[in-house]
């Protein structure tokens, strides 16, 4: 049995005027950590709400833990954990009261499943008498994860658990997920941070309600067509303009301390021709290196066409 199946799920809002999810299909194996990667408004949360039985889809079928999301929603609700994007615990209950509350409504107790949350809970236990509303972002996140886990769900839904969280806390959060994975829990997680994609078993890239690619992170970046180069110079700001003006440039984007460039044609002399052009423009300390594409490079590449259409039509 698959942990999650999604078959041509469509969801619209505003009497069909807004298409949020457009015939999305994917499947999760049991124990898999699957990432839904895309920007705000891509349709990630709508998919989460359909799967957690909070929204009815307009079309298509979906199952979670073998149960149908429309007909067997009660069974699904008993066996999943859901951490919504917006902090949804009771702000005026303490850490411990929140956890007790969620344990009780699922007919269990903190003690019964303590093993599962122990690693995470010990970090917030010193503050167990503090009201949830008074916690910092990182601690709220940990408490929310504990509350989503306390009834030992078979599938865990995490909707943007790391948005607005700093780079160090994000690394820690993914460490926690890795430990949950070893306990056999299936995890569907969404994130707008492309660098987190590498930590999933498989990822789906999503934009404008459409699933654009489903594969392992390693295979996803291998699908990048053509070569990619990192270009650096002493004057990066002007370099961007020069590269965008260059007639051989297919696309050029800033990536941290370098520009990522792809040529219209990957000919043998593409790099030397570009070097001459840039030197002629007065660019100094030039470095042009071929590099492997990352998830973000691939995402930009496959969404490019949509963006072009967007800027022309809207």
């Amino acid at each position: 049995m698959k942990a999650i199946t999604l078959d041509n799920i469509t969801k619209t809002y505003d009497k069909g005027k807004v298409l949020a999810v457009d015939k999305a299909s994917f499947e999760l194996e049991q124990g898999e950590t699957f990432g839904l990667i895309g920007p705000d408004g891509a349709g990630k949360t709508s998919i989460f709400r359909v799967l957690t039985t909070l929204l009815l889809p307009d079309g298509g079928n979906a199952t979670v833990a073998g149960y149908d999301v429309v007909k067997q929603y009660e069974l699904i609700r008993n066996c999943i954990g859901y951490m919504p994007g917006r902090f949804s615990l009771y702000q005026d209950l303490t850490v411990e009261e929140n956890l007790n509350f969620f344990a009780t409504i699922f007919n269990t107790s903190i003690e019964e499943n303590y093993e599962l949350i122990k690693d995470i809970y010990v970090q917030i236990e010193p503050f167990k008498t503090r009201r949830a509303g008074k916690l910092s972002g990182g601690m709220k996140q940990k408490l929310a994860l504990c509350c989503a886990l306390i009834h030992k769900p078979v599938v865990l839904f995490l909707d943007e658990p790391t948005t607005g969280v700093d780079a160090v806390s994000r690394v820690e959060f993914w460490e926690m997920l890795k430990r949950l994975k070893y306990q056999g829990i299936t995890i569907l997680v969404s994130t707008p941070y492309m660098d987190e994609a590498a930590l999933c078993d498989r990822i789906a890239l999503i934009e404008g309600g459409k699933i654009l690619s489903i594969d392992s992170p390693a295979n996803t970046v291998k699908k990048y067509p053509g070569k990619l180069f990192a270009v650096k110079s002493a004057n990066m700001h002007r370099l961007l303009h020069d590269l965008r003006d260059y007639e051989g440039t297919r696309s050029c984007f800033t990536f941290g301390d370098s520009m990522h460039l792809s040529f219209k044609q990957d000919s043998d002399n593409a790099v030397s021709t570009l070097t001459n052009y840039l030197t002629g423009k007065g660019q100094q300390q030039l470095e042009i290196t071929e590099i492997p594409a990352g998830i973000e490079d691939y995402f930009i590449r496959i969404t490019e066409k949509q963006n072009e259409q967007h800027s022309h039509t809207s």
Binding site: G164, P192, F253, T254, I300, E304
Partner: peptide
């Protein structure tokens, strides 16, 4: 203050 959180990669760069 975090002007680009959650924004797609192209829009994030255009903002810069």
């Amino acid at each position: 203050d975090e002007p680009t959180g959650g924004v797609d990669p192209v829009t994030r760069r255009q903002f810069w």
